[in-house]
């Protein structure tokens, strides 16, 4: 089939147009993230321009309704980090153990059956976790104070601990599945090398397999941190929402307030608030959250890339 040159040009043009269209749509989809950064920054800037960063990051006085309002978010940042930190500390050991169990201990069939369990844990909407925290965990925790050594009186079941436990559970699926992939990627040869030297399973896993998949596990933890830090509904419903730093700081039985909960809670009357200082400070918080998630994301990607390179290099 020989095409006339006119036909050929037409085809070329069409194909170019199609390609450009695909490129345009793809760019629009991908560049949405830049739009997000831009618009969050645009609405955060008026706050930083008016109040600077000193009060926001270092003062604990959060009185947005006072006249003049005070926007010291230090306690809120602390709350976010405390709850996230506790959640990760709670979730990482069982997460890694579960991943090890699924990759090396349980028979393949059983771990295939367990996969839906993890998928279900990940699929349950966060508001349902929040509801569960509020109606089941909080009363349970409040009751359990009596059974704890020292007969601790837990004033309220909605506190940093409840939020952390639930956040930990929500971070668990990410941690388990990403670590499991990393552990699987360490490969059978490496494991056999260790077993052949007379190592037990625990020794093989601890001395060889875990170090070999360390960066994958780290990125799993980072993703878990991101999930916990960005989670809104659970902390809003179950952390107590008191803008304070617990005393002592590790006392998880006190209520705290997080960035996400503050944004969600204070923007409630968003329509009336548009343009106010309070509106802009919430965007400033959103911008900080965005920054944290970028840092975690970059670090995670870097680690995955490093792991891939190292395993390929070996």
């Amino acid at each position: 089939m020989i095409l006339s040159s006119g036909e050929q040009t037409r085809r070329k043009l069409l194909s170019l147009a199609g390609r450009s269209f695909l490129f345009a749509v793809t760019s629009a989809a991908a560049l949405a993230v830049l739009a997000i950064i831009f618009f969050i920054a645009r609405d955060a800037l008026p706050f930083f321009r008016a109040s600077g960063v000193g009060e926001f990051f270092f003062s604990k006085a959060w009185y947005p309704a006072h006249e003049p309002p005070q926007f010291g978010a230090a306690a809120i940042f602390a709350g976010s980090f405390l709850v996230t930190g506790a959640a990760v500390v709670l979730a990482v050991p069982p997460g890694i153990f579960a991943a090890l169990c699924m990759s090396d201990i349980l028979p393949f069939k059983v771990s295939q059956v367990l996969k839906p369990v993890i998928e279900m844990l990940a699929a349950i909407p966060s508001v349902v976790y929040g509801f569960f925290a509020l109606t089941v965990v909080a009363p349970f925790l409040q009751d359990s104070g009596r059974w704890l050594p020292g007969n601790i009186e837990i004033v309220s079941g909605v506190n940093a601990l409840t939020a952390s436990v639930i956040l930990g559970v929500m971070a668990l699926p990410t941690i388990v599945s990403v670590s499991e992939d990393a552990l699987q990627a360490a490969g059978r040869e490496l494991r056999e090398g260790s077993y052949a030297l007379g190592a037990t399973r625990a020794e093989t896993l601890v001395n060889v397999v875990i170090p070999a998949s360390m960066s994958g596990i780290c990125s799993a933890v980072l993703l878990g941190i991101m999930r916990a830090l960005g989670e809104t509904m659970v902390v809003w419903m179950a952390s107590g929402n008191a803008a304070q730093i617990p005393k002592p700081w590790y006392n998880l039985l006190q209520p705290v307030r997080t960035l996400t909960a503050t944004i969600a809670g204070d923007m409630g009357e968003a329509d009336q608030m548009t343009g106010s200082a309070h509106y802009h400070v919430l965007f400033a918080m959103g911008f900080c959250l965005l920054l944290f998630s970028f840092v975690c994301n970059l670090a995670g990607e870097w680690m995955v890339a490093r792991q891939r390179k190292r395993l390929r290099g070996g």
């Binding site: 040869e189 056999e192 090398g193 060889v208 170090p211 070999a212």
Partner: peptide, 21 residues
């Protein structure tokens, strides 16, 4: 005990598998 047995009988595999250490 497999751990003891494998200590007494060493093994070298087809593909070199040094640990990443």
């Amino acid at each position: 005990d497999t751990a003891v047995l494998r200590r007494r009988i060493g093994m070298v595999f087809q593909k070199p598998n040094p640990f990443p250490k």
